[in-house]
Design a binder for these strands. Structure first.
Lengths: 129, 129
DNA sequence: CTGGACCTTCCAGTGCAGGGTAAGGTCAAG
DNA sequence: CTTGACCTTACCCTGCACTGGAAGGTCCAG
């Protein structure tokens, strides 16, 4: 399979596949005499895995770690569980931060919705923020 | 006030202040004969405003819009209210997205916490993701 | 043998908000 | 007169995940 076909099959672009190769996520099985990249069918599963990882909010660096473990012949299960646990904690923290921010912005917005232009003091730029 | 003092007073860096100047957020009141930037006290309020805007999750581009309105002599109240309303919608969407992602990751993690290594199929890289 | 679809490498840019470093000018104290 | 703190501009670098484009090679159909 050449790079264009692999891109079409996995719903990505040749640009992205070469980029993944650059950062060590994906290697072609070989090259043709002309230098064209040749991929085996396992590349499709690998890219599906990458896509699922991205969908779970993992970074390409984290996904690469998992793939590295696997490429070294180990089952990455424990590593993946760890990664998911960490991701869960990060998500909780991120959600809590956004929730707190939302509360702040709500208060600001409520104040701004009951306008009182006379109280705008030049020295504070805008009293609503 | 010179740039170093303004940075110290507002808790930022001279780098940041020059950067703000580059993107049109802040202009020095003038320059000394030697070319040193001179700021008036109003610069402190302006930077506090910028800091409050950042704390509310506004981008520097949005903050600049508000400052531009003010610099043109208008009260930016309406614009700020608009911005806050938009920000609130964005935050809600962002929180909802993260919440959905959290649910997905939770499911993945729960599956990974009840291990069954035997079911790892080589063709899917890892059954947990 | 030509056209077009495909492939190659390399370089550069996106958005966001700055940070790092160099090479040099200025100013006040000792 | 020198030292050290401060200032200036100019340029490149960071992380993240790509994306765009240029210049050229390859392959197949007509």
């Amino acid at each position: 399979m050449r790079i264009g076909e692999l891109a079409a099959v996995t719903g990505t672009t040749t640009k992205t596949l070469r980029f993944y190769e650059d950062i060590g996520l994906l290697r072609p099985a070989g090259r043709t005499a002309a230098g064209y990249r040749q991929y085996g069918v396992e590349a499709v599963a690998r890219l599906d895995f990458i896509r699922r990882g991205r969908a779970a909010g993992l970074t390409l660096a984290q996904i690469r770690e998992v793939l590295d473990v696997r490429d070294r012949g180990h089952a990455p299960c424990a590593h993946v569980e760890d990664l998911l646990a960490t991701r869960l904690r990060d998500l909780d923290a991120q959600i809590a931060d956004l929730q707190a921010l939302r509360d702040t912005v709500t208060q600001l917005h409520d104040a701004a919705s009951t306008p009182d232009p006379g109280s705008c003091h030049p020295e504070q730029v805008c009293r609503y923020l």
